[in-house]
Design a protein around this nucleic acid. Structure first.
Lengths: 204, 204
DNA sequence: GTCTATAACCTGATAGAC
DNA sequence: GTCTATCAGGTTATAGAC
């Protein structure tokens, strides 16, 4: 019983419910999810869900906090590192973000769409509100290109990592692309993004 | 009574309901929307909604089709224009998309999140399935950079236009940005995107 | 066409047996 | 801790008066 990542069988009931909740909530969103769906997915009874988590909302709050931390957690340690160059940071962010989302493909759409109507979730996000604007990363961007808002680069960088996942169903449909090809493409992207951002930073 | 775009007052009941449905559906998504919300927003009775549109789902289908066409309608006429250069197409797409989404800020997140669980909506999208892969735009990209999948550029272009809107609440929160500033930024982007994509196309 | 009232159904949550 | 049965509340959709 060494491995306990996957085998539903040796998880505690509480963890089975959380695991099911992760799956269903991220796939369908809060509103479209029924507690019955989660119970079924977890292979337990509906009553147990309320026994362990009191309510749908409380359970959701737990999952949402988890996901928010995953989603934004990649950034925090990198942004403020004074020991790395700008190019270095870009490379790290692209690589880590793409790996993260390859393993959690529903993450970006889930977080962004749940955030739409519940800005409350921001509370579970960050201690200080200026972790981005007052970061080394932004300062480095500003120094390199004082003529362009640093946020322009920042948003473009994140967009290059995440937007393909948001468009994934569209993309695979209109380009008749298999899952395998999509994944290949995202791995290529890890190398492309540093090259592209470098070119963007120089472009006049 | 010349103007009829805005004044709720001289719209037909049917149009009032559709207008309300556009607003509520795009803001909250299908599952989180209650027909009561739409009725109230339209200033009419709940029963009238079913009188005119039979069901919540039918009404949604109408709005969704509309939005899909807006969302993808920008692309079709540009992609296959053999009379314009690649640079030209990029500029046009960036400019048109940003203008469109500035006027319909909820559009991208709405379309992408509703598409997540209902690939059925693709039906209302396009006549031929290869309108992208077999387009002049893709051919031009391929000619310029045969060493890189054209889709990499395509996705990045769309991402640069649309991703800022998807991240908008996050962005405005962490950067403490006012609506006005965000809009300014998106207008700047119309000029930045052609410059950046040009640099990306050259980068080795 | 528009309203009020209500039917029919669904969903989250709990009571209570085991 | 786990289950079955059920309640309470809310939601879509319709019946029927005007």
């Amino acid at each position: 019983m060494a491995r306990k990542e996957k085998g539903d069988i040796d998880l505690s009931t509480e963890e089975k419910i959380k695991e099911a909740a992760r799956k269903v909530f991220t796939k369908k969103g809060y509103a479209a999810t029924r507690t019955r769906d989660i119970a079924e997915e977890a292979g337990i009874n509906l009553a147990l869900l309320n026994y362990y988590f009191r309510s749908k909302e409380k359970l959701f709050e737990i999952i949402m906090t988890e996901k928010m931390q995953k989603y934004f957690g990649v950034l925090a340690p990198v942004l403020d590192d004074t020991a790395t160059t700008l190019e270095n940071k870009i490379e790290t962010i692209a690589s880590k973000y793409i790996d993260l989302v390859l393993e959690n493909p529903e993450l970006p759409l889930f977080v962004l769409s749940e955030l739409r109507n519940n800005p409350i979730h921001f509370l579970s996000l960050t201690p200080k509100t200026d972790f981005l604007t007052n970061s080394e990363f932004i300062r480095q961007l500003q120094k390199k290109r004082p003529d362009i808002r640093p946020l322009h680069f920042f948003v473009s960088l994140l967009g290059m990592c995440l937007f393909p996942f948001l468009m994934r169903p569209v993309l695979q449909k209109v380009a008749n692309m298999k899952d395998k090809t999509f994944i290949e493409m995202m791995l290529e992207r890890k190398k492309l993004i540093p090259v592209w951002t470098k070119a963007m930073l120089k472009a006049k």
